[in-house]
Design a protein around this nucleic acid. Structure first.
Length: 593
RNA sequence: GAGGGUGUAGCGAAGCUGGUUAUCGCGACGGCCUGUCACGCCGUAGAUCGCGGGUUCGAGUCCCGUCACUCUCGCCA
């Protein structure tokens, strides 16, 4: 098709360009028809330029202008004019000029749009996903997709400059379920056999270490067949990294340096040289989660000792059963009244995490506790006030339960308070490391120990002799990177000793024959001089989401799936015809059709 | 597997304790308008109120079921 190709973009023209004859290609953003004069806001990736068709234009040009609608793709040619002073639009970077049109071509027309392409469309997510191609035209989406590009580019530059190689690993691999369900791909050539899509390049990158590629990274697509969430999709992208001859701190330091560089470059944001480190236990105990949002403090305080001195029997019963009591202080707020209704909403947040209730007491103007359970604290009023450093108008919230439930439920209360009282600084990026994770977790349902993280992580040396005798106590050489309350990376120093690896497998109820069958290729590789190594894998989607100030990773993925694992745009997953099934030696159960 | 929220015109929403003609904005269509920039003004069309059943003289509204979307718990190293 012959058409006039653009000589400039829609975000480019300035006052200096006045007098030039230009061609613009783009989409009709808005049209304003004043009878004798038409204005068109023409949009492309780079911006918006106002083009004008006056009544002195050729009649065919006026005719076409009158027929234009939103999102028609057009080409215009014209002369750049300065706008009269009173008509300058200071909101637009191109607002000092306009293009006086001498010819228009319609390159393609557009059906009535389901929603107007705008910076912040008010369309529901489902509608946006169904018409994703239109949604992606919005400046909001374009900005986020660019941010993602800039982020990945900065990572590649930084790591390449530090002698990392980017190496691709296969996405059709042996199924080695490690935790999540695998996506399986049936083999056509071998009836009954399947490839799996990788949950991560974990084993391949470890083998690359054996091969001597001592600094590796990959922008890797990973797949996990589990239910989606706001911050979780079936497929996602991670920066997969692995290094040889490193110890934990080497990995932490390079990540700190990497994100310092990237945040400076992409966001012009100065992250600290080193990130706060918290042990897993400390994080759980103080913030109630293993991914605390450190943009605000609001710590959980131990209340066991004072609970003993109280007259509240619930507290004493819980303590008697080996549980614990914790308290959090909600600071006085002008925005939110600590009404009965509000306290109930906090209690509901706590109950999601299995707390049986949420006790409370408010501090009155005389520094005395009142309401809620205050009558049981009368005798220790001053001790409680001093311990919690509570001020008039503050409210104390208590949970008494087993340690885990107390921490996680009060942790949820902490997050809700911070949100509701506006204690979160949205311009802040608070990184922290969580270290010293337990290596094993007991699975009650299956009746055996499992890797809390994954089975290739190194136990800390002081626990190696007592792995089998006391698995619950073993801390691993594991680390998570947390940003603003999201787990954004997870890694460990790996096991590179076959015997130690087999011991860990055995503790996880995988006997030698089975581990040889499932992970034999890794164990075999480890027979040939494996180097000590470790790595980490930051999640690209989540990090970009946080950098963009969004709460759903769908906002930073061009074509995401919805929470039902469906893509409303292409309607996947879909049925396939029987010939395809035959080739793959598959039969679908009748009742599933 | 479980819980909360939502479902009304192409899109986004209003619609109270059930009441007869279901409302508003955007968009679409027709007309007017030479300076707007979310242009403005006049007019028109467009809705099995997610679906199925029930209660009732009467259901968008109440009840039961079901489906879809969404957030969360479980799950996800």
């Amino acid at each position: 098709m012959e058409y006039k190709q653009r000589t400039v973009t829609c975000g480019q023209l300035r006052k200096e360009d006045v007098g030039k004859t230009v061609v613009l290609n783009g989409w009709v953003h808005r049209t304003r028809n004043h009878g004798g004069i038409h204005f068109i806001n023409l949009r492309d990736r780079y911006g918006i330029t106002q083009v004008v068709i006056s009544d002195t234009a050729k009649s065919e040009v006026i005719e076409i202008a009158a027929s234009l609608h939103a999102e028609y793709c057009i080409s215009i040619e014209g002369v750049v004019n300065a706008r009269p002073d009173t008509m300058v639009n200071k909101e637009m970077v191109t607002g000092e000029i306009e293009v006086d049109v001498s010819s228009i071509e319609v390159l393609s027309v557009c059906d009535t749009v389901p929603f107007l392409v705008d910076e912040e469309s008010d369309a529901k997510e489902e509608t946006r996903l169904r018409y994703r191609y239109l949604d992606l035209r919005s400046f909001g989406m374009q900005k986020r997709i660019k941010l993602r590009h800039d982020f990945i580019r900065a990572i590649r530059e930084f790591l390449s400059d530090r002698d990392f190689y980017e190496i691709e690993t296969p996405t059709l691999i042996k199924s080695t379920p490690e935790g999540a369900r695998d996506f399986l791909v049936p083999s056509r050539l071998y009836a009954g056999k399947f490839y799996a899509l990788p949950q991560s390049p974990q084993l391949m990158k470890q083998i690359l270490m054996v091969s001597g590629f001592d600094k590796y990274f990959q922008i890797a697509r990973c797949y996990r067949d589990e239910d989606a969430r706001g911050d979780r999709q079936l497929e996602f992208t991670q920066l997969d990294m692995e290094l040889s001859f490193v110890k934990r701190d080497d990995v932490l330091l390079i990540i700190e340096e990497l994100f310092h560089h990237v945040f400076k470059k992409v966001m012009n944001y100065e992250t600290p040289e080193h990130f706060t480190r918290l042990s897993w236990h400390e994080a759980m105990n103080t913030y109630g989660v293993d991914k605390p949002d450190l943009r605000y403090d609001l710590p959980l305080l131990d209340f066991d000792e004072l609970a003993h001195q109280s007259t509240f029997s619930t507290f004493k019963d819980v303590l008697g059963n080996g549980g614990c009591v914790k308290v959090i202080k909600a600071p006085h707020s002008d925005e939110v009244a600590f009404s009965r209704k509000y306290i109930t909403s906090l209690e509901e947040a706590a109950k999601i995490y299995k707390a049986k209730g949420l006790a409370w007491a408010k501090v009155n103007d005389n520094g005395e506790l009142e309401g809620g359970i205050s009558k049981f604290l009368t005798e220790i009023n001053d001790k409680v006030i001093t311990y919690t450093q509570a001020n008039p108008g503050d409210m104390l919230l208590f949970v008494a339960d087993n340690w885990k439930t107390t921490c996680s439920s009060l942790g949820a209360v902490r997050v809700k308070i911070a949100k509701d009282l506006g204690l979160i600084d949205p311009s802040k990026f608070a990184f922290c490391w969580i270290i010293d994770f337990p290596l094993f977790e007991y699975n009650e349902d299956r009746g055996h120990w499992e890797a809390a993280h994954h089975m290739f992580s190194m136990p800390q040396t002081q626990y190696i002799d007592t792995l089998e005798s006391n698995p619950g106590e073993v801390k691993g050489d594991l680390y998570d990177l947390v940003l603003n309350g999201y787990e954004v990376a997870s890694g460990s120093i790996r096991i590179h000793d076959i015997e130690l690896q087999k011991r860990v497998f055995r503790i996880c109820n995988i006997p030698d024959e089975e581990s040889q069958d499932r992970f034999g290729f890794l164990l075999n590789a480890f027979k040939y001089g494996p180097p000590p190594h470790g790595g980490i894998a930051p999640g690209i989607d989540r990090m970009v989401m946080i950098m963009a100030g969004e709460t759903s990773i769908k906002e930073v993925i061009a074509f995401p799936k919805n929470t039902a694992a469906i893509s409303p745009m292409d309607d996947s997953p879909s049925y396939v015809d029987s010939a395809q099934l035959d080739e793959l030696h598959l039969i679908i159960k009748e009742d599933k059709k």
